[in-house]
Design a protein around this nucleic acid. Structure first.
Lengths: 216, 216
DNA sequence: TGAGTTAATGATCGATTACTCAACAACTTT
DNA sequence: AAAGTTGTTGAGTAATCGATCATTAACTCA
């Protein structure tokens, strides 16, 4: 029975995600979406209800992919703490592809939508909490493997980790030199690895020469 | 000769700054501006040319005030490094007034305007550079007063300082608990003070228990 | 093949957008 | 008080906004 849909829903959602990510909610018009999704207005509305709902779906896709990518990255890491540090370094490598996709879409959403689209902002906050939880889980695994002291506050570490990444991505967005970005990422990643207990080459004796800590 | 203007230009610019800061460039309509400035469209256009120009002027006012406030704060500080640390703590205190004004307007501008309003984005980048320079100057003073080692990279420290503040303000924006914000701000401020050389109660021997460094 | 079902279309909707301008008002100067 | 100059006004511009829907096209099943 009936006629099957011609368009690929996942493909369309991905296209929506990319254009929303690039331009933001308010600056993305239906015309933009028509071009990006290669669908006429009627089809968009029958498939996704309205612009707000489409944005929420696109944001969900973004979060799902982000968490999947993080988990996949952590699985192939030598240790949880190494994986977390390496995750930071990764941002310096993906640098110059799309100017607008360097800022986290959730950050952008919150900044863009808080005062005008509370529904979207609330959802973004929930998503950010989930990502933070994925980070916290990784720190918990680090603790379980003896990389962190028992009294370490993993939720707090996750918050700091998330803030660190946001700051790094914002520098990316600002467009500073590739070498500076790499150095900054290296420094931030080093801060994470400095948390490690009993590291043979990273004793607890450290001196602060920059913002974070640099082992001597 | 001629009729004098009825409206107060500074007052109008301040009102524009506040509403732009709250809603962002795209989500602020001329209707919003008419209400906020208490001016009719014709008057707005005769006084400020167009929406983009009004935004640029409002952003300029924001930056001027930000830098003035920072300089004033630093002048009444016991030392440059203490002033910088205290500046961070200050963000935790101003917490819950306006939900939308917790994020730096320049950050918001860059996120909001990069892909659609290059002129505004470029100006925001320039402004951010000026603020960073004000931070760097403060670090230089700290170095001159012997609070930092001679080899300290003040530009780099300023960048980290700016990123730290952005991350803290983003947490404010997320609406975490007042006590958590205070603790986070205290920790971040502590990281700054840990840079101090020859502090009698902060020897160089420190252990990393959180992200930054905590003196033992 | 024809009946039934649903996807796709795009002209069109009213509302809103940034913006303009001719008419008017208010002030200064002569 | 008259002339001259400039600020203020708000109805109105064309364009675009998000969203709709009658119509048509494309498929499945009997």
């Amino acid at each position: 029975m009936s006629r099957p849909a011609k368009f690929d829903r996942d493909e369309a959602l991905q296209a929506a995600m990319l254009i929303f990510w690039e331009k933001g909610y308010h600056a993305t018009s239906l015309k933009d979406l028509e071009c990006a999704l290669k669908m006429k207005p009627g089809s968009i509305y029958s498939a996704f209800c309205n612009k707000e709902n489409l944005y929420l779906l696109a944001l969900g896709l973004y979060v799902q992919r982000s968490i999947n990518r993080f988990r996949a990255h952590m699985e192939q890491a030598n240790s949880p703490l190494t994986g977390l540090a390496e995750y930071i370094r990764g941002f310096a490598r993906l640098a110059p592809e799309d100017v607008a996709c360097q800022v986290c879409m959730l950050t952008k959403t919150l900044v863009d939508a808080t005062s005008t689209e509370p529904k979207i902002a609330d959802q973004a906050k929930i998503h950010l909490g989930h990502i933070r939880q994925a980070f916290a889980d990784a720190f918990e695994r680090a603790k379980a493997e003896g990389e962190l002291p028992d009294h370490a506050d993993c939720t707090h570490l996750a918050r700091r980790f998330q803030g660190t990444i946001a700051a790094l991505r914002f520098e990316l967005h600002l467009g500073i030199e590739q070498t500076d970005i790499a150095a900054l990422a290296e420094e931030l990643a080093g801060d994470v690895e400095t948390l490690r207990l009993n590291a043979p080459d990273h004793p607890h004796l450290i001196t602060a020469t920059s913002f974070g800590v640099t082992p001597t």
